[in-house]
Amino acid sequence: MSAIQETVMNNTSRLESCFAELKQQNRPALVSYLTAGDPEAETSRRLLHGLPNAGVDIIELGMPFSDPMADGPAIQKAALRALNNGQTQAKTLEMVRRFREENSTTPIVLMGYYNPIFCYGVDRFLADASSAGVDGLIVVDLPPEHDEELCQPAAQHGIDFIRLATPTTDAKRLPKVLANASGFIYYVSVAGVTGGSAPTPERLESSVAQLRQNTDLPIAVGFGIRTAEQAATIGRYSDAVVVGSALVDCIEHANTPNEAVERVHSLVSELAESVRACREVSEPQVC
């Protein structure tokens, strides 16, 4: 029995177990983002089910929304493809439930905007998400000022509420951001939308270091990370690296569903290999 299986049985959350195990391996987690139902239900299901084998440690699954204000063109288009092909909140939860039938260890974090959850009904959503096997939520438009809406109820259902810290989060703001955070902290590497410009390496490393002084939660870094090389650089000092738009682009540029699945999984494998090796070469030599 692996360490992960043991801890799950001891009621530790999947996210905690995952980060604990990766700490032992001394490597960061690879977090992938895909929009649920993109490009359509069946391909999306195949994409999702193949992620762990391709090397993903934590799955972020986007709940498509018609007006994704914090997303760049790639994820906007992904949401539209999914919605045009009939994706709903209920279908997204059903995807997670089916995934859990064959995988009980890989954490799944649902990411999206508040309105579809609000319309589904917060209590009903949390109950259904919990029973489907959802581990955490990232809801872009719910800052700590609205914690009573979803963050606090989620905790009662045992679902982590992953908070975003950003380049605009100053020392005054940070305690508020960290107050009810759980699971991990998602550091948004650049002020902007998803899929935008790449972060500046030096500034990013010092921001993560600063964040680490204020929290014991694992720190994931995302926004603008597209290549294995970028992932490796950032993975040396962060606990997780999130790649989204680059994967979603593979779906957009594929000519067939099979090609979409192959391209996404092959990019994931490349990224996975890179994050697995990223700290080996950079260990300082003690003379």
């Binding site: 508040y114 872009v140 800052p143 000022e145 609205h146 950003t166 605009t168």
Partner: peptide, 20 residues
């Protein structure tokens, strides 16, 4: 103080915008 008119209004924005 939270920008609410009864249950309406509020500040449902991305964290990047909150300090601003």
């Amino acid at each position: 103080a939270n920008g609410l008119f009864g249950r309406f209004g509020g500040r449902f924005v991305a964290e990047t915008l909150m300090p601003l």
